[in-house]
């Protein structure tokens, strides 16, 4: 299994296509960092425009607010919406790409069980997802920390503001990245499942993106009848739960409780739902693949 995994990883990381995603992430992160470095104040003004009636914001405040932690949050907010495409590029290609190249039939004449092959393929996609996240963490989190420094983190929510002490932030990012890994693995598993049905990778990649986009729109729409009927079951509703780690508890006087998470059970529940999705997608993919006649 390990030997096969090594082969898969070798194949993935030998392909130029693989590095498109890393390049894209680096580019997006860098562009956001540059923009906020040189024009962060206007961005902050925009965010705070709602509050300027009640509060005074001097330059010192804005400088502190625009710290590495906030920048990373802004980047994650943007990037975790685009990442599924990058994930789908590899996972959607996992089986369909081999079918398209004609190497799938060759691989399947080797003494490897189909289940084993699928598990290896999926694990390789998972490792690729992790690698993307690690690169993102390095660039978006540590890069921003280096460029912008650190300070207390302010998270602007639709109906409130969360303020977290400097020392209380970093572990939340680790948790959030861990969560994001699961969330993106869900997308990866979906692309992987679709990949089993296709004979070229364009189909699964586009199908995955379409599903993610449609589901995200449904998740973000404020339509009351969907709130309880559809939304709780869409995996996209749960993909943003990494933010739950940045929602803190406060005491009766509105003081942040350090080290707390506002609604950990909800975050864990979301995590559980995503894991169920992963198993369903992966299980179905293996089941279908085991029965499939390889005709390509």
């Amino acid at each position: 299994m390990w030997k096969l995994l090594k082969i898969e990883l070798f194949k993935i990381f030998k392909r130029p296509r693989t590095y498109i995603a890393f390049g894209a992430i680096a580019a997006i992160v860098f562009l956001i960092q540059i923009a906020l470095k040189y024009d962060g104040k206007s961005y902050i003004d925009l965010l705070l425009s709602n509050l300027s009636g009640s509060f005074e914001f001097n330059d010192d405040f804005k400088d502190k607010l625009l710290n590495g932690y906030l920048i990373c949050f802004v980047i994650l907010n943007t990037l975790l919406i685009q990442m599924p495409l990058l994930i789908a590029l590899i996972s959607g290609d996992a089986i369909a790409g081999e079918a398209n190249m004609g190497t799938l039939r060759l691989a399947m004449t080797k003494p490897i069980s189909r289940t084993e092959y699928m598990l290896v393929k999926f694990t390789a996609s998972f490792i690729y997802t992790l690698a993307l996240l690690v690169v993102m963490a390095l660039l978006a989190l540590f890069g921003s920390m280096l460029i912008f420094g650190t300070n207390d983190m302010v998270v602007l929510r639709s109906e409130g503001i969360e303020q977290i002490k400097n020392f209380d932030v970093l572990w939340r990012y680790f948790a959030a990245f861990g969560y994001a890994a699961v969330a993106l693995t869900t997308v990866s598993a979906l692309a992987f499942l679709l990949s089993v049905f296709a004979e070229n990778s364009i189909g699964p990649i586009i199908a995955t993106m379409s599903i993610v986009i449609v589901f995200t729109i449904l998740s973000e729409m404020n339509i009351p009848i969907y709130d309880e009927t559809i939304k709780p079951y869409l995996f996209t509703s749960h993909m943003v739960a990494w933010k739950g780690f940045f929602y803190v508890k406060a005491n009766a006087e509105g003081t942040t409780i350090n080290g707390s998470i506002e609604n950990l059970p909800a975050v864990l529940r979301s995590l559980g739902i995503l894991i169920v999705y992963i198993f369903v997608f992966l299980g179905t993919a293996i089941w279908v693949f085991r029965k499939k006649d390889i005709l390509t």
């Binding site: 070798f10 030998k14 004609g102 691989a107 004449t109 003494p111």
Partner: peptide, 24 residues
């Protein structure tokens, strides 16, 4: 089977090594 489709982005030696490993 039919065409000898291999990993075009890899070298001959790399292809050979992969299929040897896959053959156990």
């Amino acid at each position: 089977i039919e065409r000898p489709d291999l990993y075009k982005y890899l070298t001959a030696l790399e292809n050979l090594r992969i299929f040897a490993a896959m053959s156990g």
